[in-house]
């Protein structure tokens, strides 16, 4: 005999319930803010028929265990993104050729030391 109280209380039918595929919900991406003033950070997604319920799920899913002051939910399909395979377009941002625009591209200490030695 089952010890599950729900089994004892309710009359279960044996029929397998079929979910209707045309009633699919959609996903919403969740952005979580750790403290006021911080950036909202993407933390994952929830599955919901609308924004309001997505927010309820986001609160349950992402605001329950970690520090959180604010949440955004955005329909996944509303995000316009680049493809990862195109990531090489950003290589110029980290290339060695553009050191002239990095703080680390300007090294004066050696010159100053040489200058000081020369004038000793």
């Amino acid at each position: 005999m089952s010890l599950d109280p729900r089994i004892k209380r309710v009359l279960l039918n044996d029929e397998v319930y079929k979910l209707e595929k045309d009633k699919c919900w959609t996903t919403f991406e969740v952005f979580h803010q750790k403290k006021t003033g911080a950036q909202h950070t993407h933390v994952g997604c929830v599955h919901s028929p609308n924004h309001k319920l997505a927010m309820v799920f986001a609160k349950e899913q992402y605001g329950r265990r970690l520090a959180c002051v604010n949440l955004w939910v955005i329909k996944t399909t509303d995000i316009f993104s680049l493809r990862h395979e195109d990531s090489d377009m950003f290589n110029s941002a980290i290339t060695q050729d553009k050191k002239y625009r990095d703080a680390g591209g300007f090294k004066v200490r050696e010159k100053i030391n040489a200058f000081k030695n020369r004038n000793k």
Binding site: V16, K21, K23, W25
Partner: peptide, 21 residues
């Protein structure tokens, strides 16, 4: 489920497959 959905199977299909065994 969210992670699995990114691979193309809908959550409803997954839940349906669980219920049908």
């Amino acid at each position: 489920y969210s992670a699995a959905e990114t691979l193309g199977k809908t959550r409803e299909e997954m839940l349906s497959d669980l219920l049908s065994g």
